[in-house]
């Protein structure tokens, strides 16, 4: 589904990604872990198409398409979804109207007819239940004045509405209490299918108790320095990132 080959990227003139290689297949859950500043969020942003970063080399193929050649909105149309670490507040645009536009634009890209008001509300109701989000919240301006937990639940709600093929969760657990983590994780898990995949980007292992990964990769200094199964996450939790740093330093 996703094939990243030797991806390098800069922010201004500083090299942040120094050759990433990653293969994700349909039905899999991958986790990328790493200390602050290792390049995790950069990788997520580059995949979603933020133009803040310059891709300097390598390739990314998404369902047979050259992902890096697509605009952010086209990537969404192709089925890529990024749950933001810091969802942006949009004053004056209600979440419902935003979602209606977003969903119908994505449907248009996929050659589907727009949903009418009745169909839309039915779908929305169904997905709201999934993340335990309230309708009054959705009538308010998008993310404006939302608590941290509400913002993250709203991200998962959007994900549920758009039904992406690949969902990238960027530090979705940061700032959440344990109940909120459970709600968010349940939402994500209930959306898992044979034909979609999830990439969890996280600093801590705790989210992975709820969204159990098939593969864990450790990102350090712009490169994936180690890959393994979920046990690797537990090892990191126990020993901290220093053992990885020390190992790589000696190589």
């Amino acid at each position: 589904m996703l094939s990243i080959k030797n991806l390098t990227a800069n922010i201004e003139d500083r090299e942040i990604l120094k050759g990433i290689n990653l293969e994700i297949k349909a039905g899999e859950v991958h986790a990328i872990m790493g200390p602050n500043g290792s390049g995790k969020s950069t990788l997520a942003s580059v995949l979603a198409g933020r133009d803040h970063y310059d891709v300097t080399g390598g390739s990314v193929e998404f369902n047979g398409k050259d992902l890096l050649d697509l605009k952010p909105e086209e990537r969404a149309g192709e089925g890529l979804f990024l749950a933001f670490q810091y969802p942006v507040e949009i004053p004056g645009l209600s979440t419902i109207n935003f979602m209606k536009t977003s969903l119908n634009e994505v449907r248009k890209y996929r050659g589907q007819d727009p949903l009418d008001a009745v169909q839309f509300l039915k779908l929305m109701k169904e997905k709201m239940a999934l993340v335990n989000i309230d309708k009054t919240l959705l009538s308010r301006s998008l993310n404006e004045g939302f608590s941290g937990g509400e913002k993250k639940r709203n991200e998962v709600f959007q994900m549920a509405m758009l039904e992406p093929k690949l969902a990238i969760l960027d530090e979705t657990d940061s700032g959440l209490d344990i109940d909120a983590i459970r709600i968010v994780a349940n939402g994500v898990n209930s959306l898992r299918r044979e034909d979609n995949a999830v990439l969890v980007v996280t600093h801590y292992q705790r989210l992975l108790d709820y969204i159990v990964p098939d593969f864990v990769h450790v990102l350090w200094n712009g490169k994936i320095v180690r890959s393994g199964t979920k046990e690797l996450a537990l090892e990191l939790e126990e020993r901290g990132y220093d053992f990885i740093k020390n190992e790589t330093a000696t190589v």
Partner: peptide, 28 residues
């Protein structure tokens, strides 16, 4: 610009994202 990218990442074109932000600005 962060707002524009956020909307684009949800499938909304750049022009439409700008318009939505401006509409939101005028709404109150």
């Amino acid at each position: 610009e962060d707002g524009i990218f956020y909307l684009r990442s949800r499938g909304i074109s750049e022009d439409m994202a700008r318009s939505l932000l401006l509409h939101g600005f005028a709404t109150d």
